[in-house]
């Protein structure tokens, strides 16, 4: 069994992908805890399942939705929960092009 080691840098990389911030303190607690969780899932990494192709659950093309346009929601409904809107649009601080 090869154990996966988790470095602080690795956790930082994952935090970047996750759009999450961790303080140094939080990181310190998080890394060993995360390592224990990875140890759990390593059982899958280390198990032997032989060679198999992944199969997909499918449906037939003819069963897919017909191309008919239907009414959309009213603009005010769409924007209902938005933290900030302007001119009928969702709004964020100006981004660089």
């Amino acid at each position: 069994m090869n154990k996966t080691t988790i470095t602080t840098d690795e956790v930082k990389r994952l935090a970047g992908l996750s759009a999450l911030e961790f303080t140094e303190e939080e990181l310190e607690a998080f890394v060993p805890e995360f390592e224990r969780i990875v140890e759990l899932v390593d059982e899958v990494k280390n198990c032997d399942i032989g060679n198999s192709e992944l199969k997909y659950t499918t449906h037939k093309l003819c069963g897919c939705r017909e191309d008919e346009a239907k009414e959309s929601l009213p603009q005010e409904e769409i924007l209902l929960n938005s933290p900030k809107t302007k001119k009928g649009s969702f709004c964020v601080p100006k981004m660089l092009d």
Partner: peptide
């Protein structure tokens, strides 16, 4: 929730 998001990104990355 953060733990699972991190774990998910780990197994997908």
């Amino acid at each position: 929730v953060k733990r699972r998001i991190m774990l998910g990104n780990f197994v997908l990355s």
